[in-house]
């Protein structure tokens, strides 16, 4: 039964060394697949980063609806100021005609106005 004798340690070590020397190398396709996964995960990590804290101006803007809302607000404010300063004739004619035609005075519209003046 001499041929059934098990390998000794040195012989087995020779086999292990052979196995180390014939290790499979990754194909270019596998490397490409692994790199594609890495890139996809990198993008996922980047998009998962929490947004920076907002400053006071940004918070106020966000509260009213962002820059479009701020633009609308600014337009309204400038228009109001302009109306106040310029007082377009059309507006005065309209209010003047209304009051004279109806025969009402300011006291009639705000009954307590005179009392308030009297009380000082």
């Amino acid at each position: 039964m001499a041929e059934k004798k098990p390998l000794d340690d040195a012989e087995l070590d020779g086999l292990f060394a052979a196995a180390r020397g014939t290790a499979p190398q990754p194909s270019a396709e596998l490397v490409a697949r692994v790199l594609a996964d890495a890139e996809a995960e990198r993008a996922a990590i980047a998009s998962a980063v929490p947004p920076r804290r907002r400053g006071r101006v940004a918070s106020a803007l966000a509260a009213i609806g962002g820059w479009p809302a701020a633009a609308g607000l600014a337009t309204a404010a400038v228009t109001g100021l302009m109306i106040g300063f310029v007082t377009p004739d059309a507006l005065e004619d309209l209010s003047g005609a209304y009051f004279t035609a109806s025969g009402y005075q300011l006291e009639d519209l705000l009954p307590s106005y005179g009392d308030l003046l009297g009380e000082g």
């Binding site: 041929e3 059934k4 004798k5 098990p6 390998l7 000794d8 012989e11 087995l12 086999l15």
Partner: peptide, 11 residues
């Protein structure tokens, strides 16, 4: 041990 026994006959 098992490997040595299995591979012995293939020495």
């Amino acid at each position: 041990r098992a490997l040595a026994a299995k591979l012995g006959p293939k020495r």
